[in-house]
Design a protein around this nucleic acid. Structure first.
Lengths: 193, 193
DNA sequence: AGACCTACTTGACAAAAGGCAAGAAATTGA
DNA sequence: TCAATTTCTTGCCTTTTGTCAAGTAGGTCT
């Protein structure tokens, strides 16, 4: 794998653990380039997730079904982020969540085993793994806080401001369930603006 | 530090990483016994968190203030769990969150530096750190899902079932904000039962 | 182009939850 | 112990959001 091709992943790793002396090329070479077409899946429910995925281009969502059978979009992943389903990937249990491409995507994946080998061979890279976990955990906590404290309208405005890319590509119904509201309510919020 | 005294922390570590061959005594000896009286703080906002805390006995909450100046309880920690504020502790930034004892507490703490020394000297113990992060992250994701999908009444019932200890000790107003509702609404939900 | 989807909007009504204020109950502290 | 404080409940009314159903708009496939 050519380091130049991997420019964005190399950069991403270096930005995530900036003070680590680390052989990024060897790490990047352990990843495998993949493409996912719009609508296709990186993970389907009941599978055990085996992909730790760096999303270089495109938009991805995770979703699951609630008891009424409706799809609930639990997360959006934008470019230059790591996509993974923490429960299934790290606990090695079947996933309840689906990971689906909303647009055509390209990026680099690594398996659970390969990732652990990498952690073993490159101890400093463990800090990358931790940093990603911490980052996503913090994002989830912020989301809980937003759900407690903010109105649907505020959550909409914040998402529009913080991840405008989503609105260019994602159907509004995905965004509605992500915000914890119905399509109708989202439509009414948008009408007001 | 006497291993017998640390029985519960030893057990907790062994349960968390059951298949690891690891010298738990040496790890446990790196922790320091502490007591926190009801109402006292393990962390106050604007401080940089330096405690990774195993809670042996007691009940702890984290809270912060919203823009209206109201306290929002973001989490409860029950016995036999690790208490930490992920943002401040791992990113070494001032905390926006307070960590407060709801009842008299006892447990064992370790500093950020000591924990990293331990991770360095006992690589297998890193898996413990990861497991705790993963566990709390999963809990946070479940909480987001509950906020999106469940009514206040369902969230109340689930909390009552999953963490009944909280109801024995915590004021209802803490529980109300944790559930994302007002005191009044919680009171009405309870009346119905 | 035309038929078929799916996404999105809108209206009328219903349900869930909040705001505020008063009062009751429980806890705390001197 | 008893006053002060805090916690909890309740009533009345408002706001927010949901449900359901109908209709519009836009894309897609042949």
């Amino acid at each position: 794998m050519n380091p130049i091709e991997n420019h964005s992943l190399t950069k991403f790793i270096q930005q995530t653990i900036p003070f680590k002396e680390i052989d990024v090329d060897e790490i990047v070479n352990s990843f495998h380039s993949i493409k996912i077409k719009k609508g296709e899946f990186l993970l389907k429910e009941s599978q055990i997730s085996n992909d730790y995925f760096y999303l270089q281009k495109g938009l991805v969502r995770t979703y699951l079904y609630n008891l009424e059978g409706d799809q609930i979009t639990t997360d959006f992943f934008t470019e230059n982020n790591i996509v993974f389903e923490v429960t299934s990937f790290f606990k090695r249990v079947p996933s309840e969540t689906n990971i689906q491409a909303i647009s055509d995507c390209i990026g680099y994946r690594i398996s659970y085993e390969e990732l652990n080998t990498l952690f073993h061979n490159k101890p400093a890279f463990r800090d990358f793994g931790r940093a990603i976990l911490v980052k996503e955990f913090i994002a989830s906590k912020k989301r809980v806080y937003a759900m407690i404290n903010q109105t649907a309208e505020q959550r909409y405005q914040n998402l529009l401001y913080s991840k405008p890319e989503i609105f260019k590509t994602s159907p509004l119904k995905y965004i509605a369930s992500y915000l914890g509201i119905t399509d109708s309510t989202l439509s009414r919020i948008r009408k007001k603006m």
